[in-house]
Design a protein around this nucleic acid. Structure first.
Lengths: 154, 154
DNA sequence: TGTAAATTTGGGCTTACACCAAAAAATTTT
DNA sequence: AAAATTTTTTGGTGTAAGCCCAAATTTACA
C-alpha cells in the first residue's frame, strides 16, 4: 500500500456492519481474536470468521487463520477515517439539538453512506474541530491540501 | 388510518429504494402506472410490480392489479415526511459547503437511516425553513407541538 | 375478436448479514 | 506427551432487499 492510498477511497466501500468490525479492531489494537470480536459485536464466531475473511480479501486486515487479525496499513488509514467520520457527524448533529448519545446512535445508522468528500467539506467548514462528542478527532495522515495550507500559515 | 397515524412512525420503516418509489408516486400525483415508475427508476417492470405489492402490503399505497397505484392516507403523510427529510438534510449539507446537487446526491444515499426524531430536531433548530435547495419544505400535517406553539404566538 | 401492450408471476441471481452443526486447529490439563 | 477442552473455521441454511428474464395473464385497441 503506497502513500497515496489514503486518497484512493470514497468512504463508501464498507457496509455498516463491517465498520463495527474495523473500529473494534482499531480500538482494541494489535492482534485481535475472533472470540473478542464476536462477544463485543454479539454475533456467532462463525459470522466473525467469515466477515474477517472478507475484510482480509478487501485488504483491510491481515488474517492468520486460528491466530487473529490486525489492521493493514490501508486498514489503519481507512479505519481512522471511519472514526473521524463518526465523530464529525456526531458533533454536527449535537449542533442541532441532539444529545451526544442520540447523535452517536443516529450517526451509527447512516454514517456508512456519507462520502469522504462530504466529510472533508463538513470538517473544514467546522474549522477542523479537534474534539467530538465521543472522543478526539484525528485529522490523520490524509489531511487535504486546504488544511495543510492553513496549518503552514499559522 | 386515523388522525394520529402521523405520530406513529420513526422514519426508518422504508428502505432507500422504496423511498424512490413513494416520492415518485407523490410527485406524479393520482394513480400511477407500473410502466411510468419503471422507466423513471430504470428498473424492470416486474421489479416495480413486486415492490408495489410490498408497499401495498405495508399500507402506503393502494394497488389495483393491472390498473396502477395511488398513495393511501398514511402513504401521503409518510411520503411528505420523506420529502421534508430529504430537503431539510440537503439544506443542512449546503450549509457546510456542499453544492445543492452534491448535497442532494449525498442525502439520497443516507436519508433512509435518519430518524424522524432527528429530522424534527434539526428542523426546529433551523427555524423550520420554508425553502430547501430542491424545493419547498412543507411542514405538513404533523407539526410537532413546539412549532405549533411558535406559530400560535406569532 | 384478435393482436399488441402492459402487468404480473415464477424462477433465479447477488449482497449483506445471521445462525447451527461439524470439522479442524490450538490450547490446556493431566 | 496424550487426552480433553476451547477456539476457530467450514459448510450448509435462512432472511431481507434488490435486480433480471421468461412466461402467463390481463387490458386495450384496431
Amino acid at each position: 500500500m503506497n502513500e497515496q492510498s489514503c486518497l484512493e477511497f470514497t468512504g463508501l466501500e464498507i457496509s455498516p456492519r463491517k465498520i463495527d468490525y474495523l473500529t473494534f479492531i482499531l480500538e482494541k489494537g494489535g492482534t485481535v481474536k475472533t472470540t473478542e470480536i464476536s462477544s463485543s459485536l454479539q454475533v456467532d464466531p462463525s459470522t466473525t470468521s467469515k466477515t474477517l475473511n472478507e475484510l482480509a480479501r478487501a485488504g483491510y486486515v491481515n488474517h492468520v487463520p486460528y491466530r487473529g487479525v490486525d489492521l493493514t496499513e490501508l486498514g489503519k488509514v481507512y479505519t481512522e477515517f471511519l472514526v473521524k467520520r463518526h465523530r464529525i457527524l456526531s458533533l454536527l448533529l449535537t449542533h442541532y439539538g441532539l444529545s451526544p448519545e442520540k447523535a452517536c446512535d443516529e450517526v451509527s445508522r447512516f454514517e456508512a453512506f456519507v462520502s469522504r468528500d462530504a466529510v472533508d467539506k463538513i470538517c473544514s467548514s467546522m474549522g477542523h474541530p479537534m474534539f467530538g462528542v465521543c472522543g478526539e478527532i484525528s485529522h490523520g495522515k490524509c489531511l487535504h491540501e486546504e488544511y495543510l495550507t492553513e496549518c503552514r500559515n499559522k
